[in-house]
Amino acid sequence: MSLELINVSKGFGEGKSRTDVLDNINLKINVGEIVAIVGFTGSGKTTLVKLMAGLLVPDRGNVFFKGEVVNGPGKERGVVFQNYSLLPWFTVFQNVMLAVNEVYPQWSKEQRCDHAKKYIEMVNLGSALNKRPAELSGGMRQRVSVARALSMNPEMLLLDEPLSALDAITRGILQQEIVNILGNDKTTALLITNDVDEGILMADRIIPLNPGLKATLGPEFKINIERPRDKTALNDNANFIKVRNEIIEYLMDMGGEANPQKTNSYDLPEISPVMPQSFFSKKTTKAA
């Protein structure tokens, strides 16, 4: 068991202005497993990641990492933030080095440089080593963020909608890259996403986060598709289509108004049209 959440609840504010975001969340993630949490925007996904990262403390319940209660952030749990969170005054290399220096203070400077460069190369940013985040595209920034998290060699990687701000093509490429790197290192990972396809492509299990206040986790969907998964081939995979439809159906049901096929029946009063002609002739009106 790597990460475990037991009866975790979290809300913000006090008294009347209090909003309960997450309620009674139970989740177990095994070592080496990639779990995706899928949900609508605003359902508390980022709050969930922050709880796991230790940036937030649950109101009730506990977050355990390797059997110990999580009290704060730790280097063993790397985080890739939704909005990159790169430091704009540092270059790509310096941003990654900041993390490497913290995790491997005992290494020589050369070792640390090589280590940082290795991970920057891994996300194909070798040519942008000395560029600042402002000079990079969104996809490149996200890669730096991934490289920074991976360079810490965390036991677990928390990915908070890492690809949601990217265009479809860059997104596809990065999905593949991240899965490859995670698979090579057998890193445990939790992926937050709003894209069901992305979840199926990358994860071993998908768990929907029910929308609305006091969000809870839905039933888990196991993805029994062999790796490596090819994005284009997946479209014809019967298994993929089945599990995708199941998840989307579940989310639609939970989403309520988001369901386009939902039909309501109303009792309509019986009315027949009154023509202006007949309005003036009392006979016909009464006869009707």
């Binding site: 990262a53 940036l55 952030p73 280097k75 790397g78 909005n83 969170s85 900041l98």
Partner: peptide
């Protein structure tokens, strides 16, 4: 707050 979070995660 993002920069602060980075500092926290890295335990600077």
């Amino acid at each position: 707050i993002d920069y602060i979070n980075v500092a926290k995660v890295l335990q600077l």
